[in-house]
Design a protein around this nucleic acid. Structure first.
Length: 873
RNA sequence: GGGCGAUUAGCUCAGCUGGUUUAGAGCGUCUGCCUUACAAGCAGAGGGUCUGCGGUUCGAAUCCGUAAUCGCCCACCA
């Protein structure tokens, strides 16, 4: 088998095994008697490409799913994509624009045809990329938020909520994206701190030669001013009561209103009121019945209503109007000012608050059971700290603006009637029936009904995902839904806790009456080495596919997982992947070693028998530790435990002990046990590193066609012999001591040495010491041989007689160092024990530990003193 | 403005209800080694007054208070 390359080459195996798994349909799940384990993928944007965040997220899901499969569960990981209304529509609009086609020069139907073409062309690339990663998704179940079942589910839910009175339509101040030309929900607005200016403008008082100064960050909106507001308690302005001021440049006289909303300390204490373009001003306008002048077109240019600068962009106007105000002597001063500006999450355009007719969902009643479920840990958040964030949002929840002025998405199933009013229905036919019923006009035809032009927020389909994937909205009694729902774990980023997680929980209780999942694992955000978020614009995000090419999928998975505790951001660096790749190589070479052995019908050496016994215990201990850690979603710690088991215990110790001398065969018993261990290690590794483990597992024994490590089971660990494990730890130190002596005295490994030992309690593992240290014999001595190099392990002193090679002074110095250390250590323990309060108050067990420490230290000191005496007599 | 979280070795992090021989791991660093599985490796070594200050306690990285720094979330001061 040593014709195998000395280096593992992932490219030779990855695609091969993925194809094998697919060919044998190993990812597919159907309901059966086993316990289900279900994960639904957070659907990536249909036209997106894989980035580091997906990489982390999907690696975790694959680990959970593969492990579940290997512990006897019926694991089902459902993949799919999201239509991503705004961002997909934006991409299509941009593509059309590049071809010289304006969106609105097309009919809705033609535009949608282009959008579907685009989706067919670029859609699902990301799912193909996930295969490179090894994702064991049940591809036969691949869904799309705009496929038939999901679309019908969305419409059904809309109608249901409408019937329940939880959906309403009305004119409200909403977040307007002037680039995407649509309303957004509050969650889709990202506030960014920006360096801007605070402009102090002079408003002349009507019929007076005085003026007042108003501070604003948005001078262009004076075109829509319909009042100026001051605090009623502000004595500086009490003289203004009942007066009017003239809006600069515009020349409109507007009233002074007085409201305690205005902070006297801020700016000049005078607030200009533009009800159409600011949420608070809207509130004031409402309260004081002010006119509202909408000065913007939908695209952010000045409208006719603005009266000046018509057609100019809002930011150009800001510059221009300041010039004009300056020229007119109406600018008091301009200050630097840092404020927060809302940007569209999808297009990054600066949000414009805008009054418009939109559809909303009343959230309060939906939030109640969803909040309780998380409070009660019926749905567990990992890490739990996100409960705080969730609680806060849920208990201050606002109505959800669900309409978007887009064409790409689920069209709102509302039909406007000729004489005003509307009906909501799941189909055109039903709408007509309802319309006739409502109007009493039996002559109505479909042509008389105007379907509402708006689409629904993307998240209005995503929040149904765990339900609609199993057709639980349209057919809640179906077998699959009853089997797979509620799903087990959800793995996602904390950035979509409100967008998605919270809403799925609400949907679960509202539409099914049960939670959508049991645990939510929040991943960290992948950052670069210096802590910056990975982003396209910074160019600091590696392409995951390049990494897979370079380090292998297993190496990348391993590397990224080593650094990823739940909820902690991860600092990505290529060295992590290198570590993963190196580990693959280590596994590969261990395999080469074992497969290179010749097997003989010989007696098993005692050292090998002991090593087998020990490693069996070690393996079981780690299996138990991993099960515990995985149960707590401490995945990276479980992986680290396994990494160390394989590398430090199995490769560095077990294999070195049982490895036959060069050219010698290995006995059959040891060989079989070694294969058994390797098989079990591969199983443990498989969820983390699916490809290399499949490759080696297939080589390890004859396998039937279609057989796979994917379904090799992980047994419950046995009770591990803790005593044997700790004895072996002692042994490792002894061997290390021998190695140190060899190194210091420049004695090659091939020269056998005698080992002396004093005050030792156990000789059970001596054959292993003999083999690992190349020891000719272990001799128990009463007194230290002065011509021997010594070292202490635990309470025992070991020494290697070396005659002339030993420098007595050095040995004495070494012993004195130990003497000093343990003397001080003993002093510390004695101090504790002589403290009456400690002995009186500390638990008995703790005191006993200290007494044991004291006794051990005294015994050790006695040994050291005796050796020193022997050396210096 | 409110809240939450963090601060432990050069880096990334464990350290769970205070008491595991005077704080652990991985990576990196340094020193030897091309030893017949693996230099993507092997054998070793060094490295921390647990962010500062105060408190509680027989005992504090761990609990409390406080300050600083960083991060995140929420909020209608233009």
């Amino acid at each position: 088998m040593n014709e195998l390359a000395t280096k593992y080459n992932p490219q030779d195996v990855e695609d091969k095994w993925y194809a094998y798994w697919m060919e044998h349909d190993l990812f597919h799940s159907v309901p059966d008697d086993r316990e289900p384990y279900t994960i639904v993928i957070p659907p990536p944007n249909v036209t997106g490409v894989l980035h580091m965040g997906h990489m982390l997220n999907n690696t975790i899901q694959d680990i959970l799913v593969r492990r579940a499969r290997m512990t006897g569960k019926n694991a089902c990981w459902v993949p799919g994509t999201d239509h991503a209304a705004i961002s997909t529509e934006a991409k299509v609009v941009a593509k059309l624009a590049a071809e010289g086609i304006e969106k609105h020069s097309l009919s809705r139907e033609d535009f949608l045809r282009h959008a579907w073409d685009w989706t067919d062309k670029y859609g699902g690339i990301i799912l193909k990329q996930l295969r490179k990663l090894g994702a064991s998704c049940d591809w036969a179940r691949t869904a799309f938020t705009m496929d038939e079942t999901r679309s019908k589910s969305v419409i059904r839910v809309f109608c249901d909520l409408y019937e329940k009175g939880l959906i309403y339509r009305g004119v409200r101040m909403v977040n307007w994206d002037p680039q995407a030309l649509t309303a957004l929900s509050d969650e889709e607005v990202i506030y960014k701190e920006e360096q801007s200016k605070l402009y102090h403008l002079r408003y002349k008082v009507e019929g007076d030669d005085r003026y007042i100064v108003v501070a604003t960050t948005r001078p262009e909106t004076i075109l829509g001013d319909t009042a100026v507001c001051v605090n009623p308690d502000d004595e500086r302005y009490s003289w203004l009561k009942g007066k009017k001021v003239i809006v600069p440049l515009v020349g409109r006289a507007v009233p002074i209103i007085m409201d305690s909303y205005v902070e006297m300390e801020f700016g000049t204490g005078c607030l200009k009121v533009t009800p159409a373009h600011d949420v608070n001003d809207y509130m004031l306008g409402d309260k004081y019945n002010l006119p509202s002048i909408d000065i913007f077109n939908d695209n952010g240019t000045i409208s006719e209503a603005g009266g000046m600068y018509v057609g100019m962009d809002r930011f150009d106007v800001r510059r221009k109007i300041m010039e004009d105000l300056e020229a007119a002597g109406l600018v008091e001063k301009v200050e630097d000012y840092v404020n927060k500006v809302g940007h569209s999450e999808r297009t990054d355009a600066v949000i414009e608050p805008k009054l418009s007719m939109q559809w909303f969902v009343k959230m309060e009643s939906l939030a109640k059971p969803a909040l309780k479920a998380v409070e009660d840990d019926d749905i567990a958040f990992v890490p739990a700290k996100f409960k705080n964030t969730y609680r806060h949002w849920m208990s201050n929840i606002k109505d959800w603006c669900i309409s978007r002025q887009l064409w790409w998405g689920h069209r709102i199933p509302a039909y406007h009637l000729p004489g005003g009013g509307y009906v909501v229905a799941e189909s055109d036919e039903e709408a007509l029936v309802k319309a006739i019923e409502k109007t009493g006009n039996s002559a109505l035809s479909l042509d008389d009904l105007q379907r509402d032009p708006d689409c629904l927020d993307t998240w209005f389909s995503s929040w149904l995902w765990p339900i609609s994937l199993f057709n639980g909205i349209l057919d809640p009694g179906n077998e699959e839904f009853r089997y797979y729902y509620p799903t087990s774990d959800l793995v996602t980023g904390p950035d979509i806790i409100f967008f998605w997680v919270a809403r799925m929980i609400m949907a679960g209780y509202e539409f099914v009456g049960d939670k959508p999942f049991g645990n939510v694992y929040f991943t960290g955000i992948v950052r670069d080495k210096i802590g910056r978020k990975m982003s396209k614009s910074l160019g600091n995000s590696p392409d995951p596919l390049d990494l897979i090419e370079k380090f292998g999928a297993d190496g990348v998975r391993m590397g990224i997982m080593l650094a990823a505790p739940a909820g902690h951001d991860i600092m990505y660096d290529d060295s992590l992947c290198e570590q993963g790749r190196n580990f693959c190589n280590k596994i590969w070479n261990s395999f080469r070693l074992i497969k290179g052995w010749e097997v003989a019908d010989a007696a098993q050496p005692e050292s090998s028998r002991l090593a087998v016994e020990w490693f069996d215990a070690r393996l079981n201990a780690t299996m138990a530790e991993m099960a515990d850690l995985m149960g707590k979603f401490r995945i990276s710690e479980a992986l680290m435990a396994l990494y160390r088991l394989f590398w430090d215990e199995f490769s560095s110790w077990y294999l070195e002990v049982v490895k036959p001398a060069y050219g010698q065969p290995v006995d059959k018993t040891t060989y079989n046990e070694t294969i058994r261990f390797f098989d079990m290690l591969l199983r443990l590794l498989h969820p983390f590193m699916p490809f290399i483990t499949e490759e080696l597992w297939q080589h390890l024994a004859e396998r039937k066609e279609g057989e796979s490590i994917m379904y090799a089971q992980l047994p419950e660990p046995n009770e591990a012999d803790a005593r044997l494990i700790s004895d072996f730890e002692h042994l490792k130190e002894v061997v290390a001591g021998i190695r140190t002596v060899r190194k210091q005295k420049q004695i090659p490994q091939r020269d056998a040495l005698e080992l002396n030992v004093q005050s030792r309690h156990d000789s059970r593992l001596d054959p292993v010491i003999v083999k690992m240290g190349n020891i000719s014999s272990i001799v128990v001595v009463e007194e230290k041989n002065p011509a021997a190099a010594a070292f202490i392990v635990g309470k025992a002193e070991y020494s290697i007689p070396l005659a002339d090679k030993v420098n007595v002074e050095e040995e004495v110095a070494k012993l004195n160092k130990d003497l000093d250390y343990y003397t001080r250590f003993l002093a510390g323990v004695e101090k504790k024990l002589s403290n009456e309060k400690f002995v009186a108050n500390a638990p008995e067990a703790v005191v006993a530990v200290e007494r044991k420490k004291k006794a051990d230290a005294e015994e050790k000191l006695a040994t050291i003193r005796a050796s020193l005496a022997a050396l210096t007599k």
